[in-house]
């Protein structure tokens, strides 16, 4: 692939770069000034920019690479068969996005991968912020199965305010009416490809390897990942860590409460 082409796509200083991951064109968004802060999105990915990222960009250079198969990640998931394949792809993504050694935040499935980066390559992550990460499974209190739901139930599982999820997923004017829904399904497939069927990647075994100071954030109305998992994660983390519960927020707390979640992350990584 040629050198990445950089294009400014919005007047508010948002830049979009394309990098090559395993032969798939992968989108990297970048906005703001100051020290770098990466963000890996959760279930559903980022079909569009969101206010939470603007809040981060007020103080930091926010860099948001797409994960394989998620919006902006093409069909990159389709060549990843094992957990190691996934970790190597995300590591390469962070490196090519310029995030090696930077602060890293993630939500849901993205938080799981952010934690993996810090566990497997401790020098890769300075400080870590995880919003309701996937990767663990407790038989006595299993997460909600996000892939066995009636379509009309999904918005209320993702966000405390389902309208926010619907707005995130609504087709924009001028978008391709066939490609758009397929891209949203693909995001769900990509998450399933790594986390099917239980969400259990045995991340719990690797949490002790994380040395980066780790902030855990959890929506108090998370209907996917029970908040009891936060205690479990805290117990397994060897490095410094803290837990903050976000009020009036669901599984994707950064969608429900962009200001509060951004403030916690900015404080932690300051």
């Amino acid at each position: 692939m040629n050198e990445p082409a950089t294009t400014t796509i919005q007047d508010a200083g948002l830049e979009e770069t394309i990098i090559d991951i395993n032969g798939f064109a992968t989108r990297v968004w970048r906005k703001g000034v100051g020290p770098k802060l990466g963000f890996l999105a959760g279930l559903g990915g980022l079909p569009r920019w969101m206010p939470f990222l603007d809040r981060l960009a007020e103080q930091r250079t926010v860099i948001v690479p797409s994960l394989p198969g998620f919006p902006g990640g093409d069909r990159g998931h389709s060549v990843l068969d094992t957990h190691l394949d996934w970790l190597l792809a995300v590591r390469e993504t962070l490196d090519k996005a310029g995030l090696a050694g930077a602060d890293l935040a993630g939500s849901s499935v993205g938080a799981s991968l952010a934690a993996e980066m810090a566990a497997v390559w401790p020098a890769q992550v300075r400080k870590l912020a995880l919003i309701a990460p996937f990767g663990l499974f407790d038989e006595k209190n299993p997460p909600t199965d996000p892939w066995a739901q009636r379509a009309d139930a999904v918005p209320g599982l993702m966000c405390a305010n389902p309208e926010i999820w619907k707005a995130m997923k609504a087709i924009p004017d001028g978008a391709n009416s066939i490609e758009w829904p397929i891209e949203q399904n693909r995001a769900s497939e990509a998450a399933a490809r790594i986390f099917w069927p239980l969400g259990n990647t045995r991340l719990e075994k690797r949490l002790k390897l994380i040395r980066a100071p780790t902030l855990l954030l959890w929506g108090n109305e998370d209907r996917i990942m029970p908040i009891s998992y936060a205690d479990r994660i805290c117990k397994a983390l060897a490095g410094p860590h803290d837990l903050r519960v976000i009020g009036c927020a669901g599984h994707l707390a950064e969608l429900d409460q962009p200001g509060a979640v951004a403030e916690e992350i900015l404080d932690w990584t300051a």
Partner: peptide, 24 residues
Amino acid sequence: DPRWAVPPGYVSEATQAAGIKSQV
């Protein structure tokens, strides 16, 4: 139960596209 109907990735993207076109 319809929640068992469509696990993500079960239907190929080509077939999804054909289905969306045909629904339209």
